[in-house]
Design a protein around this nucleic acid. Structure first.
Lengths: 345, 345
DNA sequence: TTGAAAGCGCTAACAA
DNA sequence: TTGTTAGCGCTTTCAA
């Protein structure tokens, strides 16, 4: 069974391809095509089960209704939720998503960006970037390819982005710990630690200490590697919870770190929150079910997708007109919520 | 900055588009292009940062290196893991994935299949289908579009598929419960219950009872709706754990059901496993961290992706030759593992 | 060893 | 109110 083309439909109806194309694109009125002809076209389209070839259309118009989404790891529930949120928002506008995982690998991410932008020529690109320098995005900008940074941004650049208020979130979280009586709070970060989201969380941590007149101790900030999370975290938990340090609470900088930290604490035979409190950024479903449930900062995931699409949509409409990509309108920072559970008393 | 085309490269080197195309596709040797010319072409390609336009290529050759993946919900960690597994396997062969969620909605799934197959004309389609009848896939078969069913299949059809041994898995799981002393075992299924994976799990449950001479009680099989899981499950847990029924264990048919069941049991103030045991199909990371950790059947997720790509790859190579889609070689059933944790004593 | 030309299926400018 | 034609960027005959 061969797929039918515009030409087949045109022949069947006895009109030109042009006319069929016009009807299909809802321009029958605009071109003053007679109602009767239009109906005959629709009927044939229906009967033949004709579906316009998106590839040909893309080649001609430059529009494919496909967007690229690059995240660190689609199997991380946090990104999976974000992806779903973006998918839903995109779907409402008739777009679909090419989803790729970069594994926080700069080379891989750069490759993916190039493949999606240069080869597949997606209409727009949404990236939760692991890159440290912005040249890749400068290039996209110069190439006039609409793109949007998600979750992470670049310090000195004004690229369009949708992020959450990481700094404020961390501050609220730490303030909560302090209110609960913890003063010596360990922090477990992870590399690549240049990520804006992580940096801002550390800043929020410092803000909270400062506001409460607690002195900042460099040695309480630990960093583990993405490649060897489990072992590193076990070691750092050991380090932080050494009696000499009097650490009574640990701030895990993201959901995965929180999980391994929880595991490490359990393995040491310590109780949460009696022996040590635990809080995390990136609230995930799982945190409701752990023992004990973990207090965390929750991000407005549905909003993230909605805003992402809204901004990107604007950008895509503005491909070659005056509104510059670096307009402040194109930088959205969403508020976060503190989810209080039982992991800090 | 405009993207460069084959023509630009050709002009820069002073040769024809044909030649550049040949070089780019690694056919320089095959056509006897001189080493010197080839080098000049590569140099120009490099300098100009030329990337072949995948859309144009697709239009000409029919190949896009894009596959479609349709799952119920990409934010369900089970599907997220599967997606990642497929992504990795696909990536190794140079393919990327258009990922869509159907929300177990038949209409939506059918639409997605049509959009991916007919409009975007993906090279292949991987579907974890929620459909009850197979006409959609009959159509794909007739259209010669390579596709593969994942996780779920159709009872009387021999479509290519990669599934796990749901029946055996459920049997092992229930046997484990019986060994631990449970005889009256409730089962919480969910609609759409026509899914082969779910049906087979119920069959496995019956197999185990039968082998142990335990009489099957219809009223112990409960079904909840995908749309109102939480409330339904709360009700069914209430029903099953009513004293009159003496149910000492509950089998949750998938991961989401398990979570809500866990929640419902906790809310009733009952202890697991002392008051009631709980087991689940679909092992997910989370089950290691719940209180108590949940005994479950684990599926070989990486293998699923690998086999999926292997089968699909064969199919794609066989688009129009003799090997029929319904060859037994194209139906893979993978074994599963019992992960014993603390939720059944 | 290389090039010219046709054509994949569509849309849009222009003509009628 | 409808049709003709060119061309998006590529690959692939066929010819030289």
């Amino acid at each position: 069974m061969k797929k039918s083309s515009l030409e087949d439909v045109a022949k069947a109806v006895g009109v030109s391809k042009t006319l069929v194309s016009m009807v299909l694109n809802g321009k029958a009125g605009q071109y003053g095509i007679s109602k009767k002809t239009e109906e005959r076209v629709w009927k044939a389209v229906e009967e033949m089960g004709f579906k316009p070839n998106a590839t040909a259309r893309k080649l001609r118009t430059g529009k494919s209704n496909v967007l690229g989404l690059i995240v660190a790891d689609i199997s991380n529930p946090f990104y999976a939720k974000i992806a779903r949120s973006v998918e839903d928002a995109a779907q409402k506008k008739g777009y679909h998503l090419l989803i790729c995982s970069s594994d926080e690998d700069a080379k891989r991410e750069a490759d993916l960006i190039s493949i999606l932008a240069d080869q597949h020529q997606v209409d727009g690109l949404i990236v939760s970037s692991t890159l440290e320098d912005a040249t890749m995005f400068d290039r996209l900008y110069k190439q006039n390819i609409p793109f949007l940074l998600l979750d992470r941004e670049f310090a000195n650049e004004m690229f369009p982005s949708v992020t959450v208020d990481n700094r404020k979130g961390a501050e609220i979280l730490i303030q909560h710990l302090i209110d609960k009586g913890s003063n010596d709070i360990g922090l477990i970060s992870l590399s690549p630690s240049h990520l804006s989201s992580l940096k801002n969380r550390v800043n929020g941590y410092r803000d909270a200490l400062e506001k409460n007149g607690i002195s900042f101790k460099d040695e309480l900030i630990r960093e583990v590697s993405f490649a060897s999370l489990r072992e590193d975290i076990s070691k750092e938990v050991e380090f932080l919870l050494d009696k000499s340090r009097q650490v009574k609470a640990i701030f895990a900088l993201n959901n995965i770190v929180a999980l391994y930290t929880l595991e490490a604490i359990h393995q040491k035979g310590l109780r949460i929150p009696e022996d040590v409190a635990l809080v995390s950024f990136d609230d995930i479903e799982l945190f409701k079910f752990t023992s004990p449930p973990i207090t965390a900062i929750s991000q407005p995931l549905e909003k993230i997708g909605e805003h992402a699409m809204e901004v990107l949509f604007t950008l895509m409409g503005n491909k070659d007109n005056q509104v510059p990509n670096n307009s402040a309108d194109h930088r959205v920072v969403l508020p976060v919520d503190l989810m209080v559970r039982r992991s800090c008393g």
